[in-house]
Amino acid sequence: MKMQYLRNVVSLRLDSEKCIGCGRCLEVCPHGVFVLAKGKSRIVDRDACMECGACALNCPVDALDVESGVGCAVGLLNTALGREGTCCGEKRACCCSE
């Protein structure tokens, strides 16, 4: 079953003018957000984006932009409270056991 998180909240942006259709974003995206059509990448499932940032980092022409991070309430709460670190801290990773 496909898991779906909140609608219309993701910060992902694609600049089609810049896109050269190399397909790197399709390769790295773990949620099938993009398809290649007419030599350009296109966002087809925006709400599936988890903002991991892989597409933007791997886009050779800077056509993608996303405020990347980890979707973890513990981490965001820690940040809000001015405590150290993201979700897991450097060593002890809460859910990073896989």
Partner: peptide, 8 residues
């Protein structure tokens, strides 16, 4: 593996 920080 599918929650975005914006969503949270």
């Amino acid at each position: 593996p599918y929650t975005s920080p914006s969503g949270v």
